[in-house]
Every structure is written in structure tokens, then in C-alpha cells.
């Protein structure tokens, strides 16, 4: 038997396997165990942070499929997210429909909206596309605020508790497993999608759209598909958001949220599933972490407590984003790969 060092693959199939080594399998198993026992030791604050990280992950996955894999920049992701959230809120509160109708419906409605934007935007590229999607976001915000009779406008709309087969998930701790399972499904689906012809077509379009077309990838079909899939993810994430917050309001879905999603995938790593997860968790959790750290410091040095300005927390967050990207432009997933290869090849690091 050959001694295995570095990657040693014998067939193409091995290269695209979901879990490439036994190690990956066991690490993921360990992660699942940790996630499973977490509610026992963590307080609702942590659980809530994980829940919103899950939502962010699903939305970021969607944006990464569109922007990271297919290369179509979108600054309107919050709009699709809002459409999903409102769809769930409206149909679950008006018609008392269960989640297994509401959530897919949110995804589908958002995907339709994605088609609506995707088709006229086919000719657009780069920043022009970004601005067109941003315009769509502004229009959606306007519609949500103005269409009082359906969306309840600026009063916001309440969302009934998610009822899982007769068992109401009325707290974040109870929602937790639901969120984890759905997020895991979303991750697996996205990973699988990228292993198929569709995924490869997306990447081909990103790398050189003209060359892709020459090779027989239908630009129209796949670009529109990317838009639809991405919005579908955003819609599902929006639906989950509605269930977690139990109340949504137009102010939750501003342009800044779109920028935040973009930040997630860039900080995490464009065109990387793992990157979407890292980025989503980073952008959601780090500000809270910094806040906690600051509070800890003021406990250590009570003298500065009155003088301390919370602006420093946010400044530190901004600085952290800059430093990360200056250090590793491929984002967190780049750092991850670097650390991984470092361990894998140790002691022959280079």
C-alpha cells in the first residue's frame, strides 16, 4: 500500500466526493454532536445568535451561488429576503398555513421575483448589474411600505409561532434544531448543486461568459437559473427570519442589509460554500463578541467605563474586516485552507 501524502486521488469521482476523507467525516460528526448538546450548556443568548447565524448562512449561500459562483453581483439580496419574509408572514398569519407550505412558498415566490429581475438584467454586467438589483431593492421597499392592506406597511406584521407537527416551537431554543437541520439541508443542497453540470456551468459563466457560451453553456438559461436559485435561498432565509423574529417590519430589510450579505460572502470567501458559512457567522457573531469583550474590559478597568464609547466596537469591527482582507483577500475560507494545508503537510509545510 502506498503511503498517502497530500491529496492522492485516483478518479474524478473522488475529486468531487462530498466528504473526501474519513477525517472530514469525523470532524463533521463531532461538530454535529457539539451542535446537538449546545442548548444544554448555552444560554438563550447564544442559541439566538446561532439561529440568526443560520438564517444569515442560508441567505449568504444564496448570494454566493449568484455572486461567488456565477459572477453576477447583486446588491438587492435583502429585497428577495424581504419577499420571503413577507410571504411567510402574510400567508401564515392570514391563512394559518403550516410551515411546510409557507417556507417553500416563500422560496418559490422569491425565486419568481428573481426571474423577474434576472431576465431583464441578462445583458447587464458588473456594477451596472449591482445597481439594477439595488434599484429593485428600493422598489421592493417602496412597495412593502406603501401596500398597507397586505403588508401592514410601517406598522410591521406579526408572525404566528412555527408549529412543527403539533408541537409549537415558541422559543429560540426550540427553534434551534429546526434551524440547524434546515441550514444543513441548504448547505448540502448547495454543495451538491455545485458538483453537478449546473454548478460547473455557473463557474464557467463566472470565469469567462463568452467562452462558456462557445462551449455550449446557455448563458440565458443558466444566468436566470442562478438568479432563481439564489432568490429561492434568500426567500427561505427570509421565511426562517420571520419565524425567528415573529415580527417583521420594512426597516429590517434596508439597502444596508444587502451590503451586509455582500460583506458576508466576500469576507467568507467568494465561490466557496464553506466561505458563506464562515462569513455569515463572522458578520453576525463578531460584533456581539467584540461587545462582550468591551464589557469585560470595562469590568477590569472600571475607570474607563464612563468614558467608553460604543463606537469603538463598531470601529474595531470595520478594522477587523479590512485587516482580514488585506491579510487574505480570499477571505476566511482562504485562511481556513491555508491553516488546513499547513496541518496536513506538516512538517513539510512548503
Amino acid at each position: 500500500m502506498a503511503i498517502r501524502s497530500k491529496t492522492f486521488r485516483e478518479s474524478y469521482y473522488e475529486d468531487i466526493k462530498l466528504f473526501k476523507t474519513i477525517w472530514i467525516k469525523s470532524w463533521i460528526g463531532l461538530l454535529l454532536v457539539v451542535l446537538a448538546v449546545l442548548p444544554l450548556i448555552g444560554d438563550p443568548y447564544i442559541i439566538y445568535l446561532i439561529n440568526i447565524s443560520c438564517i444569515a448562512t442560508v441567505a449568504a449561500l444564496g448570494l454566493n451561488i449568484l455572486t461567488g459562483f456565477t459572477g453576477q453581483i447583486s446588491l438587492g439580496h435583502a429585497a428577495f429576503f424581504a419577499i420571503g419574509a413577507y410571504c411567510t408572514a402574510i400567508i401564515s398569519s392570514r391563512f394559518q398555513l403550516p410551515f411546510w407550505i409557507c417556507l417553500p412558498a416563500s422560496g418559490v415566490v422569491a425565486a419568481c421575483a428573481g426571474l423577474l429581475v434576472g431576465i431583464p438584467c441578462l445583458r447587464l454586467k458588473g456594477l451596472y448589474l449591482a445597481m439594477a438589483t439595488m434599484s429593485f431593492g428600493v422598489v421592493v421597499e417602496y412597495v412593502v411600505i406603501t401596500w398597507d392592506s397586505v403588508t401592514k406597511g410601517v406598522r410591521g406584521i406579526g408572525v404566528p409561532t412555527l408549529n412543527l407537527l403539533g408541537y409549537p416551537l415558541d422559543s429560540n431554543n426550540k427553534l434551534y434544531y429546526f434551524m440547524i437541520v434546515l441550514t444543513a439541508l441548504a448547505i448540502i443542497a448547495a454543495t451538491n448543486l455545485m458538483r453537478t453540470r449546473v454548478g460547473r456551468a455557473f463557474i464557467a459563466i463566472r470565469d469567462r461568459d463568452i467562452a462558456a457560451e462557445v462551449m455550449g453553456v446557455s448563458l440565458t438559461q443558466y444566468k436566470v437559473m442562478a438568479f432563481a436559485i439564489s432568490s429561492f435561498y434568500a426567500g427561505i432565509a427570509g421565511g426562517l427570519y420571520a419565524y425567528v423574529m415573529e415580527y417583521i417590519h420594512p426597516e429590517h430589510f434596508t439597502f444596508l442589509l444587502s451590503v451586509q450579505y455582500l460583506a458576508m460572502i466576500i469576507v467568507g470567501g467568494l465561490g466557496s460554500i464553506l466561505g458563506s458559512i464562515f462569513g455569515a457567522v463572522f458578520i453576525t457573531v463578531i460584533p456581539e463578541f467584540i461587545k462582550g469583550l468591551a464589557q469585560f474590559l470595562t469590568l477590569l478597568f472600571p475607570a474607563i467605563e464612563d468614558k467608553y464609547d460604543d463606537g469603538w466596537n463598531i470601529a474595531a469591527f470595520g478594522l477587523l474586516i479590512m485587516l482580514f482582507l488585506i491579510f487574505e483577500p480570499k477571505g476566511l475560507s482562504g485562511i481556513w485552507t491555508r491553516i488546513k494545508t499547513c496541518f496536513k503537510n506538516w512538517p513539510y509545510t512548503y
Binding site: L262, A263, V267, W312, I314, A315, G318, L319, I321, L325
Partner: peptide, 14 residues
């Protein structure tokens, strides 16, 4: 572009 977003967050809070 992301670095400029980080910069904007930084400058605003500063």
C-alpha cells in the same frame, strides 16, 4: 470593494 466597506464602517464610527 469589501475593504472600502470595512473602511466605511470604520470611518463612520470614528
Amino acid at each position: 470593494v469589501m475593504v472600502t466597506i470595512g473602511l466605511s464602517i470604520f470611518l463612520r464610527s470614528m
